[in-house]
Amino acid sequence: MPVLPGAEPYRHDGGETGVLVCHGFTGTPQSMRPWAEYLAAQGLTVSLPLLPGHGTRWEDMAVTGWQDWYAEVDRELTALTERCARVFVCGLSMGGALALRLAALHGEAVSGVAVVNPLNRIHGLAAQALPVLRHLVPTTKGLVGDIVKPGATEVGYDRVPLHAAYSLRRFTQRLDGELPQVTQPLLLMHSTVDHVVSPADSARILSRVSSTDVTEILLEHSYHVATLDHDADRIFEESYAFFARLAPSLGKEGTATGG
């Protein structure tokens, strides 16, 4: 099945510091590529995978679940740790949740976590109905494109497969119990107005993790897909400063020139 234009995975072979970048539910690497390319330009080794079932058609996603999505980022993290001396994880929305689980389960292999509008739970009455509803209705309206910036668009599905949404709900329930295992430095950036993920999710995550080095940044000029919105440059710069503080060798490695 052909990949949607712009949805291709992205990798860059840079220095000894690596970053794994995780996209969101029904989204694609396109929403994260400017962030990944910015980090690559600073000399980091970057991996931005396309999650299983994403980036083609929603029917492909309907037969995947959270175990598939997590297994993909877990493999990418292992590859980065074999290549790099220090590895960070980043994510948007569900990608943030995946990044947090990597930190919870991999301990010292993850040096720090930077997340944007991370998902913690599926809210609303519809979420409670998912166990039954998914057998009656295949899809609901899509989530992509929650952006303030004129002309900015997100590549992703215009429908949400409910089997996948049910699996995502189960994943968030599991992750909530694992959050106390997150001890790494954490940079959490979230929009003050978000039509996809409740700001309460960020508050819940901050209250559950065991990290003592925590930075919270409010994004006041963006909606959910802040990595493509007015606050994108701030996200990129704040994350790099966060990584450079934790990996002092970053500034000495020089910048990358390739793609």
Rank of each mutant, 00 (worst) to 15 (best):
M1V: 08
V3M: 10
P5R: 08
P5V: 06
E8L: 12
D13P: 01
G14H: 04
G15L: 04
T17I: 15
L20K: 08
V21A: 13
G24C: 13
G24M: 15
F25C: 09
T28G: 15
Q30E: 15
R33I: 08
W35Q: 11
A36F: 04
E37D: 07
L39P: 00
L39E: 00
A40R: 01
A40S: 10
A40N: 03
A40F: 03
T45S: 11
T45R: 07
S47E: 05
P49L: 15
L50C: 13
L51D: 11
P52W: 05
H54Y: 13
G55V: 10
G55W: 07
G55I: 04
T56C: 06
R57K: 15
D60W: 02
A62F: 13
G65C: 03
Q67A: 10
Y70A: 10
Y70P: 11
Y70L: 14
Y70D: 09
A71V: 09
D74P: 02
D74F: 07
R75N: 09
R75L: 14
L77W: 12
T78P: 15
A79R: 15
A79H: 11
L80T: 09
T81Q: 12
R83W: 15
A85P: 01
R86M: 12
F88E: 02
C90R: 07
L92A: 15
M94L: 14
G96Y: 15
G96D: 12
A97I: 11
A97T: 08
A97C: 13
R101V: 08
A104T: 07
H106N: 12
S111E: 09
S111G: 09
G112V: 02
V113K: 07
V113T: 07
V115R: 15
N117K: 14
P118S: 13
N120K: 05
P131K: 15
V132I: 14
L133G: 06
R134T: 07
R134Q: 14
V137C: 12
G142N: 14
V144A: 13
G145C: 11
P150H: 00
G151Y: 01
A152D: 00
V155S: 10
G156I: 07
D158H: 15
A164C: 04
A164L: 08
R169S: 07
R170Y: 04
R170S: 06
F171E: 05
F171P: 09
F171Y: 14
L175E: 08
G177E: 12
G177Y: 13
P180G: 11
Q181N: 06
Q181E: 05
Q184E: 04
L186C: 01
L187G: 02
M189A: 03
H190N: 10
D194T: 07
V196K: 14
V197R: 10
S202M: 06
S202L: 03
R204Y: 02
I205A: 06
I205P: 06
L206Y: 02
V225K: 04
T227S: 13
A232I: 00
R234A: 00
E237G: 08
E238D: 00
S239A: 10
A244V: 13
L246N: 06
A247N: 06
A247S: 10
S249Y: 00
S249P: 01
L250K: 05
G254V: 03
T255Y: 03
T255R: 14
